[in-house]
């Protein structure tokens, strides 16, 4: 409990201007049956931030994302999205402002979908059941393809792309909902170091050019420190929340990984 108290003070001093957080969690606890996955999380995310999230396996990183997108309900605490308190289900207009890219799973090589089909899936939820996509939807899909720079691949089968390209397609799919926040669950886990660097640069570009708020889980600390504005270390509770290069961060990492 001590550590969370300390973090509150760090956070408040580091934020000089008063802004409304786009994501706000207040004392959120999430459980799976009798097993606590997240304990007493208090966290604010502001518009235009890149936040790197780290922590050992089973520390609740993915659970945190699932809680934010509404797949899991906290047993205690409140979730605020875009200044609105979420009571039951996330309202539609807020839901589509959050794009979530789950952990990468390789596709069947011959899966019958072209890149543009996959990106179009990002519009399906918005279009509604039983309705076809409109011209405007297709324009947004093209825009999303351009944002991540894969418009030339749009007619290729998804299974024929490399891991890095597939990951970009999934990001484009999330962007096709016209998301303002991107949550990426280990986007680089299947990539080599060159593709990893390229993908992180893409995220950096999206953040600068379109002012997207980005939360990314990654195990590569060096990379997180290079690209993030803020780092959060999780170990069921928040062990560290602050700027990417501090002694406290090193201390927190040493504590949660090596003790």
């Amino acid at each position: 409990m001590d550590s969370t108290l300390k973090i509150d003070t760090i956070e408040k001093t580091s934020l000089t201007e008063e802004r409304e957080p786009v994501i706000g969690l207040r004392n959120v606890t999430v459980v799976y049956g009798r097993y606590v996955a997240l304990y007493d999380i208090t966290l604010d995310v502001y518009e235009g931030e890149i936040i790197g999230i780290c922590g050992p396996n089973g520390s609740g990183k993915t659970t945190l994302f699932k809680t934010i997108v509404g797949l899991l309900k906290p047993i205690t605490g409140d979730l605020h999205l875009f200044g609105e308190k979420i009571v039951n289900n996330i309202p539609k207009e807020i839901k589509y402002k959050i794009g979530y890219v789950p952990q990468f799973q390789p596709f069947d090589r011959n899966f019958p979908a072209l890149v543009k089909d996959v990106v179009e899936m990002g519009r399906y939820g918005k279009a509604g059941i039983g309705k076809a996509l409109t011209k405007k939807d297709k324009e947004i899909v093209n825009k999303a393809l351009k944002m991540v720079g894969i418009e030339k691949l749009s007619e290729r089968p998804i299974g024929h792309l490399s891991g890095g390209q597939q990951q970009k397609v999934l990001i484009a799919q999330a962007l096709a909902t016209e998301a303002e926040i991107l949550l990426l669950d280990e986007p680089t886990s299947a990539l080599d170091f060159k593709m990893t660097e390229e993908l992180m640069e893409l995220l950096d570009y999206l953040n600068r050019r379109y002012n997207l708020t980005i939360l990314t889980i990654n195990h590569n600390m060096e990379l997180l420190q290079k690209f993030s504005h803020r780092i959060i270390c999780l170990n069921k509770a928040i062990a560290y929340d602050g700027p990417p290069k501090t002694k406290e961060l090193d201390e927190a990492i040493r504590k949660i990984f090596f003790s």
């Binding site: 997108v69 509404g70 797949l71 539609k92 839901k95 979530y100 789950p102 799973q105 899966f111 979908a113 996959v118 899936m121 990002g122 399906y124 939820g125 918005k126 279009a127 059941i129 039983g130 076809a132 996509l133 799919q173 909902t177």
Partner: peptide, 22 residues
């Protein structure tokens, strides 16, 4: 016919379909 695109998305990735509100 009514649910073709929803079923299609579920075959691709059920988790993403759920987040998309399907």
């Amino acid at each position: 016919y009514m649910l073709k695109k929803e079923l299609y998305m579920m075959t691709f990735n059920a988790e993403m379909a759920e987040i998309a509100g399907i």
